[in-house]
Design a protein around this nucleic acid. Sequence first.
DNA 1: GGTTCACATCACTGGTCGCTGATGTGACAG
DNA 2: CTGTCACATCAGCGACCAGTGATGTGAACC
Lengths: 103, 103
Amino acid sequence: MLTSADTELIRVIADPLRLRIVTLLAHETLCTTHLVAETGARQTNLSNHLRVLREAGIVETEPCGRFTYYALKPEVIEALAATFGELAETARTTVETGRKRVC
Amino acid sequence: MLTSADTELIRVIADPLRLRIVTLLAHETLCTTHLVAETGARQTNLSNHLRVLREAGIVETEPCGRFTYYALKPEVIEALAATFGELAETARTTVETGRKRVC
DNA sequence: GGTTCACATCACTGGTCGCTGATGTGACAG
DNA sequence: CTGTCACATCAGCGACCAGTGATGTGAACC
């Protein structure tokens, strides 16, 4: 079942730049410098978005000297995929059985 | 692969009231009156949100006399679930193989 | 035709959010 | 220890958005 917590999680991902970051991190663990180079966004802006992703528990950080590596947490995305999967399945059976509330 | 179109789709769902509507419609096809009763939101507000969902192609309408039935389109949610599934799988292998770009 | 009901659209506004420049901090190099 | 680099934080401003009341529309009932 979807909760309000899921809303917040989805809201965090539902941003062009953040989705871009998430996609990049899904393929490769990167540090901020790389993300600046890849996205072309300002460092401050990226730092703000990374903060949001961190606080939402979507990514985790690993300091390495002056650098900070950002890694995507697969279980969060997996949980999201599962949630939407269940929702899709429910919707599918609703449509196929023509479940409808009368007015 | 995630595109900017997906961003818009996710953004539309990433709203408390709209996610509530989507969840309700996943279980049962309803018309606006039911949604007003279920959510407690104003009719105008709901109509606005339903418009957004309709324009995003997430729901479809079926007029029935004075009433308008709203039904969730399962294929949209399925596509979303599949997209996140692929993303999660990519992230999983990235973490397990320790794929990381050097600074 | 007039009324009521279900629903959509419009126009406005208050609050919020995103981007930015400035600045702080901690780590390495020399 | 001084400068530089990587990154975080802060404060402020402008743009956008969400909710609302007013209003439009079209269908049913009398």
